[in-house]
């Protein structure tokens, strides 16, 4: 057992999978000589060589598309987008090709590709580099979309993604990479966390907070504050956005009768919209109060620090939302 940061857990998963399976290789911008712009693949070039750690041109369309083709033809590429914002450039390759080749060709072709995409805002990178667009990718059947919030989940989910025979978009919340608060226990032995399974991260009885990624940590902070005031919040971490596992969220909601959904993406048409829709469809009789959403305001990310932060969810906003429905 080791206590790792989220970034260390991701690095370990990649290294172990490359050691385990010769067919796994990495391609992306600055993954090799630079060591990864977020240093996730630091030392990999030295350890695995240029054949398996491939620096690409700044060409997201072919990074994604060539990874799809290489996956179909028998290898297991892990293609890195420097940030998820650049995955927009490769949108067609991801949702129109990676996500379609299995179905469109009647199951003849596997497509074991992983797209790694560091995401999230709050780093003063301006409007075009600060998106949390996870829901957009989660809209399409055929593409699995995963976003871990703890080191344990990150390592186990990335291993599951690399071993999956279909395409997986693996979103890494950058603000959590090295956060001491997020540091957590990771077993030494090999394990996976199955894709498509949610997890209860805190048990409670008074209200259900449904979230994932960065949202998990503001939700846990909020739950801590609420506990001091005698409110026991249960926190459900979705972990996988597509396919979405609502079983734990539903079970929790049927126990607490109240829910808040927390996400760092924009509110309109967000993950919260889907979660709320499913809760009311499947548990209408349990509704005791409106289900609240805490999300990024519908505004492009401004550069200026405090202004940018004001648009993002925080523990205080979650506490306020909970109190409004208690």
């Amino acid at each position: 057992m080791a206590r790792l940061t989220l970034r260390e857990a991701i690095t370990e998963a990649l290294r172990e999978e490359m050691q385990r399976d010769e067919n796994v290789f990495i391609m992306g911008e600055e993954v090799g000589a630079w060591g990864g712009t977020y240093a996730v693949t630091k030392g990999f070039l030295e350890e695995f060589g240029e054949r398996r750690v491939r620096d690409t041109p700044i060409s997201e369309m072919v990074i994604a598309g060539a990874a799809v083709g290489a996956a179909m033809a028998g290898t297991r590429p892990v293609a890195e987008f420097m940030t998820i914002n650049f995955a927009f450039v490769a949108f067609d390759a991801i949702v129109n090709h990676a996500a379609k080749v299995s179905y469109m060709f009647n199951g003849q072709f596997d497509c074991p590709v992983v797209f790694r995409a560091p995401g999230g805002g709050g780093k003063q990178l301006g409007a075009t580099h600060s998106h949390t667009p996870d829901v957009i990718f989660a809209h399409f059947p055929g593409l699995k979309v995963v976003c871990p919030a703890t080191p344990y989940d990150a390592k186990g989910l990335l291993k599951a993604a690399i071993r999956d025979n279909g395409p997986v978009l693996f979103i890494e919340p950058v603000p959590l990479y090295t956060s001491p608060k997020v540091r957590g226990d990771v077993p030494d032995e090999d394990y996976i966390v199955p894709i498509g399974e949610a997890d209860i991260k805190r048990v409670g009885k008074d209200v259900t907070i449904i979230t994932y990624g960065e949202g998990l940590h503001v939700s846990l902070d909020a739950a801590e504050t609420l506990a001091k005031e005698g409110v026991q919040a249960e926190v459900v971490d979705l972990r996988t956005l597509q396919p979405l596992d609502m079983s734990l969220a539903l079970a929790s909601f049927k126990k607490t009768f109240k829910a808040v959904v927390v996400e760092f993406g924009h509110q309109t048409y967000g993950i919260g919209a889907e979660v709320v829709a499913q809760l009311q469809e499947q548990a209408f009789d349990y509704l005791d109060a409106p289900i609240k959403r805490v999300a990024q305001y519908d505004v492009p990310a401004p550069y200026s620090g405090e202004l940018e932060k004001s648009a993002l969810p925080d523990a205080k906003k979650v506490v306020t939302a909970v109190k409004e429905i208690l």
């Binding site: 369309m61 598309g65 799809v68 083709g69 290489a70 028998g74 290898t75 129109n96």
Partner: peptide, 25 residues
């Protein structure tokens, strides 16, 4: 025969990836 594709140009990247897989193996 890895298929016909309907988005103009997209499959050139897939073909490039298939060649990459061949070179890799």
């Amino acid at each position: 025969f890895w298929g016909g594709y309907g988005i103009v140009g997209a499959h050139l990247t897939l073909g490039t990836g298939m060649a990459l897989a061949e070179q890799y193996k």
